[in-house]
């Protein structure tokens, strides 16, 4: 089956990807420019709230700090801005995908204090003080996370929109139980929908990682 498929040209894949990424960054840049109009004072961390104090944010933009992939990021967002939109449109981190925007598909999965969450259902202001890890923080093409590498080896993607979310869910499950079996793997991606139907390869990639092979081969 696998060998029947025409091999995707690495170059073609890259140019399509860089086109999409370029387009996304351009629109993110435009949004950032709009946001900066009302962002006149320098961003600062909110002081820890003294007892009895009341915080009121918005509806206009408020300066906040988010800790993403170990780095403190300063941005200015309206309280209605979700963590997902903050990542994609304010910070240009487009690895986390926007698909259903209702917490139903899992494409926007990130880790918050080590647990998977749909970032489309988290307000960015509520992510303050939390450790956020996105797909960009898990690994990069030169230094892939074992789950990412296993996805490459198992050909566990087609259109790729669900892939970052799948990888985050599986990475979180394997961190909790590095020897997770197929049932546990299936449970871990129960909230990640793949419309291409790549599930068998996704499970294979996860199980290969759990069994300790497949890791690192994607770098070769």
């Amino acid at each position: 089956m696998k060998s029947d498929k025409p091999k995707k040209s690495h170059k073609a894949a890259l140019s399509r990807r860089s086109f999409l990424k370029g387009a996304a960054l351009t629109s993110a840049g435009a949004m950032a420019a709009v946001a900066s109009l009302s962002h006149l004072k320098p961003a600062h961390a909110d002081a820890p709230m003294p007892a009895g104090a009341v915080e009121r944010l918005g509806p206009g933009p408020a300066p906040i700090e988010l800790k993403i992939n170990g780095e403190v990021k300063r941005l200015s967002v309206e309280p209605r801005v979700t963590l997902l939109r903050a990542l994609r449109e304010h910070l240009g981190m487009t690895g986390t995908k926007l698909v259903c925007d209702r917490g139903a598909c899992g494409a926007c999965t990130v880790l918050m204090d080590g647990r998977t969450v749909t970032s489309c259902m988290v307000l960015a202001v509520d992510a303050r003080g939390r450790e956020i890890v996105t797909i960009e923080g898990l690994g990069n093409p030169a230094r892939m996370h074992p789950v990412q590498a296993a996805f490459v080896v198992a050909d566990a993607m087609q259109c790729g929109f669900c892939t970052p979310g799948m990888v985050m869910s599986i990475a979180a499950a394997l961190k909790r139980n590095p020897k997770a079996g197929e049932d546990e793997i299936r449970q871990s991606v129960a909230g990640n929908i793949c419309r291409c139907g790549t599930y068998p390869h996704v499970f294979a990639a996860a199980l290969n990682t759990a069994r300790g092979f497949g890791a690192g081969k994607g770098n070769a």
Binding site: G52, V54, L57, G58, R80, L123
Partner: peptide, 15 residues
């Protein structure tokens, strides 16, 4: 989504 403010109350009674 409409614009909204988010208010953090001091305690349940305030909320």
């Amino acid at each position: 989504m409409n614009r909204f403010e988010v208010v953090t109350p001091a305690d349940v009674e305030h909320a």
